[in-house]
């Protein structure tokens, strides 16, 4: 009888984030009559995509036992670089280069990967703690973003037909009624899930995070695995830099400030353990939705920004407490099962 109860609790705990999401949606649809409208849901989805894509990258980093604080600044830097390339081109000597939007996207993704790679190299080869390394690159990237335009905004990112650089705004537009960012989120989520669950590399992420020493003894190049996690994180942040710029129709150097925290929160809510070794993509997606729904729902209900922060903080701590409870219960049940089999 007791065992059945435990199992029920376990099932509930395992699906807890999803249950919380459903409860939140129900709650907000009662609290604000317009919450369940198509417009609102589109808006929520647009915001969720922003946190979600960052959280996908963050999931890989946290699974390997690290943390990436630089993603918010990478969003700002990539936005400014992309905005600058469209508005002013890249002047080299007496020539000015204007790239097409696809080329700009490719270049910006490379910038994101490069920053991730630098993070990874410093953390693994130079043995600097991930928290410190990415705190450093966070400041550096934010500084570079401001330096690009001396703190000003690139306001005309529409581009010109004649220069062949029109089209970035499409990333911020709706396609068939759904924001472009949501498509990117869906595609990247799918790719991330495949990578984590269906490829040897995915196992290596989990192995390095779970027991780095054993991973090394198994012949896994744990440094390389970690570096890849940061590259993925930088790649995802670059996408957000582009999408956010497109959505705003302008590149602000302060864009993405503090977003790394939303990404970490979504990842942790999604059940990824901060100590590394476990986590799922689907969990992170649900976590991103929870963060998005809480943020937009509270705004729609007229909850003040100050209270929103308090509630968000409480939700994150609560999630981790539940996580711990689940672990303890799981250990207890495993022990029980062992005793029974004896």
């Amino acid at each position: 009888m007791k065992k059945d109860n435990n199992q029920l609790v376990m099932t509930l705990l395992k699906g807890r984030t999803f249950i919380v999401l459903i409860l939140l949606v129900i709650f907000f649809s009662f609290a604000s009559s317009s919450f369940l409208s198509l417009n609102t849901l589109t808006m929520v989805a647009k915001h969720v995509a922003l946190y979600g894509i960052l959280a996908l990258g963050m999931t890989f980093v946290i699974i390997t036992g690290g943390i990436d604080l630089s993603v918010g600044s990478v969003v700002g830097l990539v936005g400014m670089l992309a905005g600058g390339l469209i508005q002013e081109g890249f002047t080299f000597g007496d020539k000015t280069l204007y790239f097409t939007v696809p080329a700009i996207i490719v270049l910006m993704l490379c910038v994101g990967c490069l920053i991730g790679w630098i993070n990874g190299i410093i953390i693994t080869k130079l043995n600097v703690a991930a928290f410190i390394t990415t705190l450093g690159t966070m400041y550096i990237c934010r500084g570079l973003a401001n330096l690009r335009s001396n703190g000003a905004t690139f306001a005309s990112i529409g581009g010109f037909e004649g220069l062949g650089n029109v089209g970035l705004k499409a990333l911020g537009a709706d396609w068939l009624g759904i924001p472009a960012g949501v498509y990117v989120f869906a595609i990247l989520s799918f790719m991330a899930a495949i990578l984590l669950n269906k490829t040897p590399t995915g196992w290596h992420f989990l192995a390095v995070g779970g027991n780095e020493k054993s991973a090394k003894l198994s012949g896994i190049k744990s440094d390389q695995v970690k570096i890849w996690a940061y590259i993925i994180s930088g790649f995802c942040a670059a996408w957000i830099g582009l999408i956010n710029t497109a959505q705003l129709s302008a590149a602000h150097p302060a864009s993405g400030d503090g977003w790394e925290m939303n990404a970490i929160a979504a990842t942790v809510l999604g059940g990824t353990s901060m100590s590394g070794g476990s986590g799922t993509i689907i969990g992170t997606i649900v976590g991103a939705f929870v963060i998005g729904v809480i943020n937009d729902g509270m705004t729609m209900c007229g909850v003040s920004e100050f209270w929103q922060k308090i509630i968000r903080g409480a939700v994150i701590i609560l999630a981790v407490i539940i996580d711990q409870t689940q672990r303890n219960l799981q250990a207890k049940m495993a022990l029980q099962a062992r005793n029974e089999s004896k």
Partner: peptide, 16 residues
């Protein structure tokens, strides 16, 4: 392949 190289300051000829 996806880049347009122009003389510095001649954007007007391309953008109108």
């Amino acid at each position: 392949n996806q880049v347009l190289v122009i003389e510095k300051g001649t954007e007007g000829q391309y953008t109108g």
